[in-house]
Design a protein around this nucleic acid. Structure first.
Length: 754
DNA sequence: AGGTACTTATAGAGT
DNA sequence: ATAAGTACCT
């Protein structure tokens, strides 16, 4: 019988098929399993896979779930629409593009493209790019889009306009307007547009609303705690007709507020859907009692959350190890030492270990140590394959061929490899383009009629002709064939072969890897879900370059990873570790200002998110968990000193080994309650005074040569030299017991003695 | 126009 | 520490 392997709570959640329901799934409680069986159960009950929509957090998760369901109910499972919000709805938008005034070969701009575009606009508006920092502007626009605030609505919103004005950015709304205009001119959408425009489609086209409501009779959403308002609204509308909406999540694992996720979506679900049934999965099958209890004791410190009692009947296990080390280097070698010890004496595999950290830059020291010890490792995320220059260049050629209006792609390749079209000429094209409100490519096509003479008009014409020739073949050739022609026509390989730099061989290998991916895409089986739509839809099943590009733009680094058969240690950020589990887990960098991040200290909501992040990290571990802290760490080229993370104190010490009671270090975190209220748009107030580096600058001028000072770690000593001034003052201190140290006063927290 | 040398911004998680 | 931007030279 299908449901025999499930516990009572899981079974209940599976058997409730109709109506609205919320499944609160604690860490390690078999959530994926439950969801898998639930979908299989629906199909077995006679629901057509065509009528099921399942939204997951990564494409990889979707793929794995599909495979499992296929194992349970057979190949019809391949017909389920399953994937991330972005990938599923980008397909819908592709199909219905005309309703939005787009063609289906529109480009998806990634964050980088967005920022470049914003930079150009800020420059064109003659605004100060320090005040109008492109990352800030991008965040603000993204937040607006995620809250379904259009440029016009933004301008009419008194509160938003006042916020902008009060921080000296009154033209932000104008930038937003221009940004959207230029996106449209480039026939491009950014990530947020995919969701925003899906909402527009459903709002403005009653026939389409009905069509997709009829199609998606059963809507299931995984990781519901990490959905934003735009996503919330899409599924609300889609499920309004049949009212079969099942959301699964854990409010304690909500870690994407920075990206617009709204934890209220899950907290308010019952208010929103009055008849909603609630199921709680509370038994943890993953971790030892010590790990579960320790994680519980931490997350208890959060105020806003749904009551639940996560427990386990697993063995008690070892206590969690907390280890302070003197530096990031020591921390790294401690970790590799612990790994080596377990591998040589206990026959544990490399792949049983994960090293998790808050920020990507922490991987460096750890990598060095692992390499030194010959421990095989694999780093997830970091500089993604698709972020590499050589890959982006070639993809830009592809993009321009697929969509001639794609201005960001045009800028990237018009003179790469160098073909004698310089800044001056490109500037003239830009002006012509904005005067006539056309794309750069269209301007290039009309180079001859431009008033100012273009000395390189012939070269531009050659380039245009080349791209156009490829474009003509877009629907005739498969992605690999056309891609190879473009690669040859671009002379990119020739460029890297002639390049002296030793890194260029690797670049060529990467390009070859991309070509392999193209070949694999062409050879792959047709995606059955694309076959299913009938009527006026364009064909999505061709293995052409445009389809490849759309797939690739929404692929994350974790989606890309092959099923790793290699036996390696995994290194990744905690965010990337969401949903994974490992027998042995190290969480590195348990320090104030790093974890919790210095940027989170300004609000309780942000701090609670950091706490949930640690909760996620801890609950990845099955058998053994290590938390490490480095007293000194290189950051931004400078040595940095931080206290151990406040979170260490928050974990009940009975589950912890190695915690050192701090005698006299003062921890001023009791001020939690004094945080200022947040405006309703997440992150929209992050422009408020927030000094880079975070630590308030104290009176650094009060130290003098020969003065006796005290340092928390190094003890007493005498200042031998002082150099630099202001923020950068450094002191050479001769410590009584710790030798000479050069300290940055801003970080070192030196105290005067006597 | 293209390349090199110096300057300066940026260092939070990622679809 | 590093990437990206600018100034200047060939």
């Amino acid at each position: 019988m299908l449901l025999d392997g499930l516990n009572e709570a899981q079974k209940g959640a599976v058997e409730q098929t109709e109506g609205a329901m919320l499944i609160i799934a604690g860490a390690g409680s078999g959530k994926t399993r439950t969801l898998t069986y639930k979908i299989a159960y629906l199909i077995e009950k006679g629901v057509s896979p065509f009528n099921i929509l399942a939204l997951t957090f990564t494409n990889k998760a979707a793929q794995e779930m599909k495979e499992r369901i296929t194992n349970l109910v057979g190949p019809s499972a391949m017909q389920i629409w399953m994937g991330t919000f972005h990938s599923v709805f980008s397909k819908v938008i592709r199909i219905e593009a005309q309703r939005l005034g787009y063609l289906s070969n529109f480009t998806i701009y990634d964050t980088n493209d967005s920022k470049n575009l914003l930079k150009a606009i800020i420059k064109d508006f003659s605004l100060d790019d320090k005040i109008y920092n492109k990352s800030f502007v991008q965040n603000r626009i993204s937040a607006a889009k995620n809250n379904l605030i259009s440029p016009v609505a933004y301008k009419q919103n008194v509160q938003l306009m006042q916020e902008d004005e009060s921080c000296g950015k009154k033209y932000l709304s104008d930038i937003y307007i221009e940004y959207n205009l230029r996106l449209r001119r480039a026939m491009a959408m950014d990530f947020d547009d995919l969701l925003f425009n899906m909402n527009v489609l459903l709002r403005d086209n009653p026939d389409l609303l009905l069509k997709y409501q009829e199609k998606f009779q059963y809507v299931l959403v995984d990781e519901y705690q990490d959905t934003n308002y735009s996503q919330y609204y899409i599924i609300k509308k889609l499920s309004a007709r049949f009212k079969n909406i099942c959301v699964v999540g854990d409010d304690s694992q909500s870690i994407y507020a920075f990206r617009g996720a709204n934890i209220q979506n899950i907290l308010n679900f019952q208010r929103d859907y009055k008849d909603a049934k609630v199921f709680k999965l509370e038994q943890n099958y993953r971790s030892t009692q010590n790990i579960v209890n320790a994680a519980n004791s931490l997350i208890e410190k959060n105020v806003g959350k749904i009551k639940k009692n996560v427990w386990t009947s697993n063995v008690q296990g070892d206590k969690i190890t907390y280890q302070e080390l003197s530096s990031d280097k020591e921390e790294a070698s401690y970790i590799s030492g612990q790994i080596l010890k377990r591998i040589s004496y206990q026959g544990v595999k490399h792949s049983d270990f994960a090293i998790l950290y808050r920020t990507n830059q922490q991987s460096r020291a750890i990598e060095e140590s692992l390499r030194f010890q010959n421990i095989p490792y694999r780093i997830f995320s970091g500089l993604s394959f698709y972020d590499r220059k050589e890959i982006k260049d070639l993809l830009a050629y592809f993009r321009l061929v697929v969509n001639n209006y794609d201005d960001e792609a045009f800028i990237r390749v018009i003179n790469f490899p160098a073909r004698g079209i310089g800044e001056t000429s490109i500037g003239k094209l830009r002006i012509f383009a904005s005067e006539n409100n056309i794309s750069l490519f269209a301007s290039a096509q009309r180079a001859k009629e431009m008033s100012s003479d273009l000395r390189c008009a012939n070269k531009i014409e050659d380039f245009v002709t080349m791209i156009k020739t490829f474009s003509l073949n877009l629907q005739q050739e498969d992605a690999f064939t056309l891609g190879s022609q473009i690669l040859a026509g671009s002379h990119i390989i020739k460029f890297w072969k002639e390049d002296e730099d030793p890194g260029s061989d690797n670049k060529i290998e990467n390009i070859e890897e991309l070509m392999n991916a193209l070949q694999a895409f062409v050879d792959s089986e047709e995606d059955a879900i694309l076959d299913e739509l009938t009527g006026e839809e364009i064909s999505l099943k061709n293995k052409t370059l445009d389809v490849f590009l759309q797939q690739v733009s929404l692929m994350s680094e974790t989606d890309r990873q092959e099923e790793g058969n290699e036996d390696t240690v995994s290194l990744m950020t905690i965010h990337a570790a969401k949903g994974l589990e490992f027998p042995y887990v190290f969480v590195a960098g348990m320090e104030e200002n790093l974890f919790p991040s210095v940027l989170s200290l300004g609000s309780r909501d942000d701090l609670e998110e950091e706490r949930r992040l640690l909760y996620v990290a801890m609950t990845r571990a099955e058998k053994e968990l290590f938390l490490t802290c480095a007293q000194a760490r290189y950051r931004n080229g400078q040595m940095n000193f931080n206290d151990p993370s406040r979170f260490i104190d928050e974990i009940d010490s009975q589950y912890l080994n190695g915690a050192i009671a701090k005698q006299d270090s003062i921890k001023p975190y009791k001020q939690e309650e004094t945080f200022k209220p947040k405006p309703h748009l997440t992150k929209l107030n992050s422009s408020l005074p927030n000094p880079i580096g975070g630590t308030p600058v104290k009176d650094l001028g009060s130290f003098a040569l020969g003065m006796r000072v005290f340092h928390d770690k190094f003890g007493s000593g005498v200042i031998k030299e002082l150099e630099g001034k202001g923020d950068d003052t450094k002191a050479l201190v001769v410590f009584d017991n710790a030798g000479e140290k050069k300290l940055v006063l801003r970080f070192a927290k030196l105290k005067k003695q006597e």
